[in-house]
């Protein structure tokens, strides 16, 4: 979606008669990438669904306050990431649950005739889950969503240099974990 489309959708959302239509268009455009971002962070589908809904409910409520100073997708990623961090604070044991889910899924895969690549994916996710929170978020946004450091900076309110350092440490830790698990 380009900036003109985003502006059009937001003008619809600010008109009470077209608000719902604009909302549905915005959600249809961004639900998949935002869901994937949330899912990679919280792992459980049920939690990801709740957080996705919470993210877009906030968008519905605060659409008027969006001034267009940043791109819509960075605003959406910011809200979604904040909702995920709230989830981490509320559920102190979420990480145990996430590691358990990933382990169970890996167990199912290794029991099947699946090729080795699926197992590698689970090991990779396990390595990411062991990262500190900030490094995990930066790594996901950079590696999977392929966002620029400038965009990630807007989402996380951090400087580019800090983010590059976070990414570097994250990737080193992941490599180390994969070597240990090989």
């Amino acid at each position: 979606m380009n900036e003109a489309d985003e502006a059009h959708i937001f003008s619809m959302m600010k008109d009470p008669r077209l608000r719902d239509k604009g909302f549905l268009q915005l959600m249809d455009a961004y639900k998949e990438p935002i869901y994937s971002h949330i899912r990679r962070l919280v792992v459980s589908h049920e939690d990801a669904e709740d957080i996705l809904q919470e993210t877009f409910i906030n968008v519905y409520r605060f659409a008027d306050s969006f001034k267009g100073e940043s791109r819509v997708f960075t605003w959406l990623y910011r809200i979604a990431t904040n909702e995920c961090t709230k989830h981490f604070r509320r559920n102190k044991k979420w990480i145990n649950n996430a590691v358990k889910i990933t382990g169970e899924m890996a167990g199912e895969v290794s029991g099947n005739d699946s090729d080795n690549s699926d197992l590698i994916l689970f090991k990779f996710q396990s390595a990411i889950l062991r990262l500190p929170e900030k490094q995990r978020i930066v790594f996901n946004l950079r590696y999977y969503d392929e966002l620029s450091y400038e965009d990630i900076g807007q989402i996380l309110n951090s400087s580019v240099n800090t983010l590059k350092t976070n990414y570097h440490y994250a990737s080193e830790k992941i490599k180390q974990y994969l070597i240990e698990q090989a």
């Binding site: 994937s36 899912r39 990679r40 792992v43 895969v109 590698i120 994916l121 689970f122 996710q125 590696y143």
Partner: peptide
């Protein structure tokens, strides 16, 4: 070698 897919 891992790619951008997730197992979820």
């Amino acid at each position: 070698e891992i790619g951008k897919n997730t197992p979820y």
